[in-house]
């Protein structure tokens, strides 16, 4: 992943947000979707994506579904009910973070003086 240290903490939130919008998705689809949305700037590595998906599944945030597609099995991930609620919290948290970083990096001129 590009600038992996910065993005690492947000990977789970990115996954949850995508699933919230798209219903169910499989691993490869997620990597492609992120690439498309960010116009190739953000590349989720496979070595980070699957561990994150498995962890979210174990935490009860995601549920899995299997479908037979072509001549292979496809594992779809989707948000559980608890996961949907958690997504709202995490997105709010991420938005706060973005806002705070923005004011730190780009402080607005202070007009009080």
């Amino acid at each position: 992943m590009k600038n992996s240290q910065l993005y690492k903490g947000s990977l789970n939130t990115i996954i949850m947000k995508l699933l919230e919008e798209n219903g169910k998705m499989y691993g490869y689809e997620i990597t492609q979707k992120v690439k498309a949305i960010t116009q190739g700037e953000l590349n989720i590595t496979e070595g980070a994506l699957y561990p994150a998906l498995h962890k979210l599944e174990a935490e009860g945030i995601l549920d899995v579904e299997i479908e037979k597609v072509d001549n292979r099995m496809r594992k779809y991930y989707k948000l559980t009910e608890a996961g949907t609620k958690e997504t709202v919290n995490r997105l709010a948290e991420l938005e706060d973070f973005i806002r705070n970083m923005q004011s730190l990096v780009n402080p607005r001129p202070n007009l009080e003086f």
């Binding site: 691993g27 490869y28 496979e46 099995m73 594992k75």
Partner: peptide
């Protein structure tokens, strides 16, 4: 295996 195979196949 089956999850990785599907991933590689798609790719």
């Amino acid at each position: 295996q089956s999850e990785l195979v599907d991933h590689l196949a798609n790719a």
